[in-house]
């Protein structure tokens, strides 16, 4: 079936989002497209900030919505759809990261533990914006920073998601903030 083009203005207005969730769960792809258009930027932003790469984020965003389509029938409505979607997206991103990490660890040398500073701006005197500085963080620090400071996750939840201790999450967060400060004030 060909995709049905719906403008952003139309998305979410023709039907209520909750209706679209129910319809999409029943197999209505137009309703699912409307859900996609409502939530795409939020999920893409999350993917971009978590992985630090826009091209990879586009692929991850697609992976997230394909996974949502597959899992939508399991959504019970105990939480808001947006919350459920966000949680699922984080899991997709982190699982992709784990798979990629396993591959990279056997292929490339890991850069995870290198004490690197975010890449400096191209021009001397040009202050780096926060988004660019986040993208330049080491992966571990970036993930914790995005989950905690951008997305508002608690350290306990981050520890569960990332398979680390709460103290480890706090340490990574502090490291991330210090690196960002250095990048932003250079």
């Amino acid at each position: 079936m060909a995709a049905v083009a719906i403008t952003e203005g139309q998305a979410g207005l023709s039907t209520q989002p909750q209706d679209d969730v129910a319809r999409a769960a029943a197999g209505d792809r137009r309703a699912f497209e409307r859900l996609y258009r409502v939530h795409a930027d939020r999920i893409f932003s999350l993917c971009t900030r978590m992985c630090g790469d826009r091209t990879m984020a586009e692929e991850l965003t697609q992976d997230v919505f394909v996974r949502v389509w597959e899992k939508l029938a399991l959504f019970r409505g105990d939480s808001a759809f947006g919350t459920w979607l966000h949680r699922l997206a984080v899991n997709v991103i982190l699982n992709a990261r784990k798979g990629e990490g396993r591959r990279r660890s056997r292929i490339d040398e890991s850069v995870e533990d290198l004490e690197v500073l975010p890449h400096s701006p191209d021009h001397v005197g040009e202050r780096m914006d926060l988004q660019a500085a986040i993208a330049g963080l080491p992966p571990g620090a970036r993930r914790v920073f995005v989950l905690h400071d951008v997305q508002g996750y608690r350290h306990e939840d981050i520890a569960d998601l990332l398979g680390m201790t709460s103290g480890g999450s706090k340490a990574q967060l502090h490291r991330a903030r210090m690196l960002l400060r250095e990048a932003l004030t250079r």
């Binding site: 795409a40 930027d41 939020r42 893409f44 932003s45 971009t48 900030r49 826009r54 984020a57 586009e58 965003t61 926060l130 988004q131 986040i134 920073f145 400071d149 951008v150 508002g152």
Partner: peptide, 10 residues
């Protein structure tokens, strides 16, 4: 960080 705007795919 809490105020970062949303990003749209290209």
């Amino acid at each position: 960080a809490r105020e970062l705007p949303l990003i749209s795919p290209s």
